[in-house]
Design a protein around this nucleic acid. Structure first.
Lengths: 331, 331
DNA sequence: TCCGCTACGGAAATCGGTTTCACTTTTGTG
DNA sequence: CACAAAAGTGAAACCGATTTCCGTAGCGGA
């Protein structure tokens, strides 16, 4: 197999202990010996066995991440942003997907912990059924919840202020003169769905409208299509359809346009997330941008601070999102 | 810390060796002892330390994957599909992104190998500059290239038959009466870009057209927009624009429609990949569907067979793609 | 010169499992 | 029933690093 630290030590004429210290850059090694060890390592093309190092030092330099669906562009962007932040150090990312199933999530998290990840970034798939999984994990390693969070467990969380985002949307629509609204979202099984629904109802109330039809399904374009059909089949389309996320909104948009409804003249449509394709639809989608780079950076920062032993109470960081006005709401 | 196998063995009244055998399901343990070990493990909530097991057994049950860009929905879907296939066993995925930089890719692959992944699924970012990295990796662990592949290294590869896909597109356009074509693609720095460009030129020649303008940039929607602007600024739009992938095509589509060009009546547009949002554009995008689930399944199958010691020559599996005809090319 | 302190360096313990090896017990067969 | 083969078991070696522990050398100060 490969060359071991023992060979490096022999070639450098020092003990294994000294070689180890030199390679990990610890102080307590004379410069001359350090240089000879490093030279020997280079000459032999020494590749340290990270598994052995992890066993003894109890640090794997690996962090775990679990998301509901890897292929969702929103989560994929988060994964990329987290991975990018880790690369600075020499850390790697063990990735798992829960497919929105709390039982799968439980097993996946357990598998990550068995592998002794140093910390966990979790986007929990359910605001209630994920609580135990997240809580158990948090007893073993530092955990930061990202984007979504569970109910009944108070730990670090970084996400966007969903209610504020929905408020901006509704204010914007009201300013454009929309009187009747509808909401197409997801059943509140996760914290974002919940917050966006709550935000919508409070915002609509604030503008003294009744909130109009509220249709709840899941975060898919298919559901967006279905919901749009329902709205068109009922009497009187609303002035604007507020959607729980971009995927739904794109489905709604496609269904409306297929049936010849003009957007935004007859009905305005808004999304949430600003996924990469929100700006490519016709009309381009007015939406709420989540600063994912920032979210990921904060999440990694929180984890790192705990891993370095910082003692502090759990933090919840709600980043304010930006409204992006595009063609789907302009007159 | 946690409970170790030693405690489990004591509680079950057997040796550590027997406990290990029982837990890993090896034969050679009396049923009674096996049951007692399993019971003890359950009662103590024993969680095996995968790091220690990996050190001795030299098997990490972890496979590495590197892709050019995690946030690209096409790659994200591949990642999800690969991860899904692994879940069957108790294997996990160490994920890395190269950001299309061969030097970053080299470091990332090295990091994965240091962590002693059992195998590597690689989507190499450059058909030439990635060759050394992939070749070196292949000397250490089984490697399967997925989607893209490097030049000058003959190993397992699973991907789509890009030339066949482009042929289908051009045949379809010709059947609809398109006489003049244009191609908007990426500089052939990766094998798909190369194959699609080659395929386009051969297909166009076969239909006795000259191939028309060929514009090369990168696989981004911005480049699609720019290229469309160039086409519109030159004299005489072609009957159809064949794009190197969906992202470019969506950019082209958006730019054309913004300038009032009717699609497909004046110009038809095609993509490649069938990313999730290809069907949501207006008009919906005619494209070539890559069977990603199938590709991922084949890739994992190839790796698994090598890991199980099968001896065979390197395989190249080119899956035939399907043409999906949508609004952007129908009359 | 002597003493104490710090910096170095090596032998050996350690991390927590798996695997080998030698020995004992069962099982199978003629 | 005798004896070979197979199955079951535990002690100890092992995987390859890091870390502890302790001894030695070098240095500054009294």
């Amino acid at each position: 197999m490969g060359v071991r630290i023992h060979e490096v030590a022999v070639r450098a004429g020092v003990s294994v202990a000294t070689a180890s210290r030199a390679l990990s850059g610890q102080r307590g090694v004379r410069a001359e010996n350090r240089d000879r060890v490093l030279a020997a390592a280079r000459e032999l093309d020494y590749e340290p066995n990270a598994v052995a190092a992890a066993l003894r030092s109890r640090v794997t330099h690996t962090i775990g991440m679990i998301v509901p669906r890897i292929s969702n562009p929103f989560f994929a962007t988060l994964v990329e942003a987290v991975e990018g932040r880790l690369q600075d150090g020499r850390r790697s990312l063990l990735l798992a997907g829960s497919h929105y199933d709390p039982e799968v999530e439980r097993q996946q998290v357990r598998s990550l912990l068995d592998r002794r990840v140093d910390a966990l970034v979790a986007v929990p798939c359910h605001q209630h059924h994920s609580t135990e999984t997240i809580g158990n994990a948090a007893e073993r390693v530092p955990v930061t919840q990202l984007d979504l969070r569970v109910d009944g467990f108070h730990g670090d969380w970084v996400g966007v202020d969903n209610e504020a985002g929905v408020f901006q949307v509704v204010d914007h629509l009201a300013a454009l003169g929309a009187h009747s609204l509808a909401f197409v979202g997801s059943h509140p099984s996760d914290s974002s769905a919940q917050a966006r629904l709550d935000g919508y109802e409070r915002a609509a109330a604030r503008h003294a409208h009744h909130s109009g039809p509220v249709l709840l399904g899941d975060f898919s374009k298919e559901w967006g299509r279905q919901a749009a059909e329902k709205l068109m089949d009922s009497e009187g389309l609303p002035d604007a359809v507020v959607c729980g996320n971009d995927t739904i909104a794109l489905g709604v948009l496609a269904a409306l346009i297929e049936r010849g409804v003009r957007v935004p003249e007859e009905v305005m449509v808004t999304g949430f997330d600003d996924i990469p394709y929100a700006e490519l639809s016709r009309p381009a989608l007015t939406t709420v941008r989540q600063p994912q780079e920032r979210l990921a950076a904060e999440a990694v920062r929180l984890l790192t601070s705990v891993m370095e032993g910082e003692q502090r109470p759990p933090q919840r960081i709600a980043v304010a999102p930006d409204l992006l006005v595009r063609g789907s709401t302009k007159r």
